[in-house]
Amino acid sequence: VTVDIKGMEYHFDNPEEAKKFAERMAKELGGELKVENGTLKVE
């Protein structure tokens, strides 16, 4: 699973970990979490 945090890509084997990480980063950065082509994106 790929997580894109404002252009920086992180790769996770575990989808649950990827989702938790993306949600935490969205909250910390005040960004919006989206799913695009199987990639979790925070913008």
Rank of each mutant, 00 (worst) to 15 (best):
P15A: 13
L29F: 08
A22T: 02
R24C: 15
E17V: 05
T39E: 08
K34M: 10
V42T: 05
N37C: 12
A26H: 04
E43S: 12
V3Q: 00
F12V: 00
E36M: 09
A26P: 00
L29R: 02
K27Y: 09
K34H: 11
H11L: 09
V35F: 13
N37G: 11
K19Q: 13
K41Q: 08
E23M: 03
H11Y: 14
M8P: 03
H11V: 11
L33T: 06
T39Q: 12
E28K: 11
G31Q: 06
L29D: 03
K34I: 13
F21S: 01
G30C: 14
G7P: 00
G31T: 06
V42H: 03
E43R: 10
M8Y: 12
N14L: 06
E9T: 10
G38H: 04
L40S: 05
K20M: 09
P15N: 07
I5S: 02
A26D: 01
G30V: 04
E23F: 00
E28P: 02
E32H: 14
K41T: 11
D13Q: 08
E32K: 14
F21H: 03
E16V: 11
E17S: 07
K19F: 15
F21R: 00
V35W: 15
I5P: 01
N14G: 06
E17R: 02
K41V: 13
D13W: 06
E17P: 00
E28R: 10
A26C: 13
E16M: 08
G31D: 05
D4M: 15
E32M: 12
G7K: 02
N37H: 05
E32I: 14
R24F: 12
L33Q: 04
E9S: 11
A26N: 04
V3T: 01
K27L: 12
A22P: 02
L33C: 13
E23L: 02
L40D: 06
E17N: 05
F21P: 01
G31S: 07
L29P: 02
N14V: 05
E28G: 05
V35P: 05
T39I: 15
I5G: 01
V1N: 07
V3S: 00
K41E: 06
K27T: 10
L29E: 03
H11G: 03
E28V: 12
V3R: 01
A18C: 08
K27V: 10
G30H: 11
F21N: 01
R24G: 09
K6L: 15
G31Y: 12
E16Y: 09
G7Y: 04
K6M: 15
V1R: 07
V3M: 02
E36P: 03
V3I: 07
D4G: 07
K19I: 14
D13L: 08
V3D: 00
P15Y: 15
N14F: 05
A18S: 01
P15M: 15
E32Q: 14
M25E: 02
V35G: 06
V42P: 05
V35Y: 14
A18P: 00
G7H: 03
E43N: 11
G38M: 01
V1C: 15
E28C: 15
G38C: 11
D4S: 15
V42D: 05
V1Y: 14
R24T: 11
K34A: 07
G7Q: 01
V1D: 02
A22K: 03
M25K: 04
G7S: 02
G30D: 09
E43L: 15
D13K: 07
M25T: 03
V35S: 10
E9K: 14
E16P: 00
A22H: 03
Y10H: 09
E32A: 12
N37L: 08
A18F: 02
D4R: 14
R24D: 11
P15S: 10
N37I: 04
E28L: 14
I5A: 02
K19T: 10
E32Y: 15
F12A: 01
E43F: 13
T2S: 07
D13R: 04
R24Y: 12
V3Y: 00
M8I: 14
R24S: 11
K20H: 10
A26Q: 07
K6G: 15
F12Q: 01
V1S: 08
G30F: 07
Y10I: 09
F21I: 02
D4C: 15
E32P: 03
D13F: 06
V1T: 12
E17F: 03
V42K: 03
P15W: 15
K20D: 13
V35T: 10
M25C: 12
T39S: 11
H11C: 13
N37V: 03
E23Y: 00
E16N: 07
E32R: 14
F21D: 01
E43G: 11
E23T: 02
K20P: 00
K6T: 09
F21W: 08
V42W: 02
N37Q: 06
K27C: 14
A26T: 06
K41H: 11
E17Q: 08
M8E: 11
V3E: 00
A26F: 05
E32F: 14
E9I: 15
E36Y: 04
D13G: 08
E16C: 14
T2M: 09
P15D: 09
A18L: 03
E9L: 15
G38R: 01
K6Y: 15
M25L: 08
G30E: 07
R24E: 12
K6F: 15
H11R: 07
D4T: 15
A22I: 09
T2A: 05
V35C: 15
N14T: 12
L33G: 04
E16S: 10
E43Q: 12
M8T: 13
F12P: 02
G30I: 03
Y10A: 03
E36R: 08
V42N: 04
N37A: 04
G7M: 01
E32S: 14
M25D: 00
K20T: 07
L40H: 06
F12T: 00
E28A: 12
L29V: 06
K34V: 14
A22D: 02
E23C: 08
E28Q: 11
M25A: 06
K34D: 05
V1H: 09
E23K: 02
V42R: 00
E17D: 12
K6V: 11
E9A: 08
E28H: 12
G31H: 07
E36L: 10
E36V: 14
V1P: 02
D13N: 10
